[in-house]
Computed example of a mutant assay.
Amino acid sequence: MDLRQLHTLIAVADTGSFAGAARIVHLTASAVSQQIQALEGELGVAVFDRAKRPPQLNAKGEEVVRAARQVVQIMAETRMSISGTRMSGVLKIGAIRTVSMRLVPRVFTRMRGIYPDLSFDLTVELSERLTLDVSAGRLDAAIVAEQVGVPAGLSWAPVLTEPLMLVAPPETRGLDAARLLREWPFIRYETGAPLARQIETELSRLGVSPRLIATANTMPSIIGCVQAGLGVAVVPKMAIADAPPGSIWCPPSGPGAVTRRLGVIQRQVSSRVRVLESMRDLLSEAAAESGLAAPDPGAPVGD
């Protein structure tokens, strides 16, 4: 087994075919097939299901690909360490939409001051999908909402806590939450994300069953509907960070408001632990500057 075989295996996993991998590793498709067969011979197991067309990774293959990504990354960073080269390459980060629009760009800019040779690849998705991508080695880490359980081999460290807030059109300024929810129709966030369930929890806390006027699956579209006067909505505080002054009204939440925690999920064994620690620290700083609370230090962290 050598690094060429591992690079080829990763290329097949990323492109979904031997032909696609051949273009990346600059080999013929038959040479790619030969390398994969040699790798399987050394491992003593088949990593592809060849009954399917094109061949697909089986469960053992997925496991080997995850290990291959780590080995390739560790070797690259070891060479840099020995040669005295500064940290470089691409940091592959995932983020849910609300943090991708403001906090993550700010953090990437600050990280450039620490690691000037580092570049970034940002993927915006739902928390569940990002967690799967981290587990599979397609991402180095991701900024996701707190989850009920953290998959084996991953760790999750909280970086910020934010409240859920009722937002209403600017002409409702001065009205309280109870009156707004009685008199105005509701715009619902409808996705499979944990946030959608948390919003329903907040509505239950407020003791209302709002009259639905619209659904949307992105926070910017919900905020736009509110600003246009269509209705009211419940959103995380970060979603209104860029709203122009006076464009929405946020009545006081009162005690007991629902909050959500966001944090960084990564593999427990990572060759980029130092870089990811810097990213977490910078995320916490940027969150504090945006008026978002630090997580409760006594709260449990998934492992």
Rank of each mutant, 00 (worst) to 15 (best):
L3A: 10
H7R: 14
L9W: 10
T15A: 09
A19R: 14
G20H: 01
R23P: 03
I24Y: 01
T28C: 06
S30F: 10
V32N: 02
V32M: 01
I36H: 04
E42A: 11
L43Y: 00
G44W: 11
V47W: 00
P55H: 04
Q56P: 00
L57S: 01
A59W: 08
A59S: 15
G61M: 04
V64Q: 07
V65T: 04
V65H: 06
R66Y: 08
A67F: 14
A68P: 10
Q70F: 12
V72E: 04
Q73K: 13
M75Y: 14
E77H: 13
T78I: 13
M80G: 10
I82F: 14
I82H: 10
T85P: 01
T85C: 08
R86A: 15
M87S: 14
V90Q: 13
I93Q: 04
I93R: 08
G94F: 00
R97W: 08
S100R: 09
S100Y: 02
M101T: 05
R102H: 08
P105F: 00
R106I: 00
R106S: 11
F108E: 10
F108Q: 12
R110E: 13
I114Y: 08
Y115C: 04
D117V: 03
L118P: 04
S119I: 09
S119E: 11
T123W: 02
E125C: 12
T131H: 00
L132H: 15
V134P: 00
A136W: 08
A136Q: 15
G137I: 10
R138H: 07
R138T: 07
D140M: 05
D140T: 09
I143W: 09
A145E: 10
V148M: 14
P151I: 05
P158F: 11
V159L: 06
V159Y: 04
E162I: 02
P163N: 07
P163C: 03
V167M: 03
V167E: 01
T172F: 03
G174A: 05
A178Y: 06
L180M: 06
R182E: 15
I187Q: 00
I187S: 01
I187F: 01
G192H: 08
T201G: 12
E202P: 00
V208T: 14
V208Y: 02
L212T: 03
M219A: 01
I223M: 05
G224M: 08
V232P: 06
A233S: 11
V234Q: 08
A241Q: 02
A241L: 09
D242Y: 02
A243G: 03
A243I: 05
P245T: 10
I248Q: 06
C250Q: 14
G254F: 11
G256D: 13
T259A: 08
G263K: 09
G263D: 02
V264Q: 07
R267Q: 11
S270D: 08
S271I: 12
S271Q: 13
V275S: 05
L276E: 05
S278H: 09
S278G: 06
R280S: 08
L282W: 07
L283M: 07
L283E: 00
G291F: 03
D296W: 11
D296I: 15
P300N: 14
V301N: 09
G302P: 03
G302S: 13
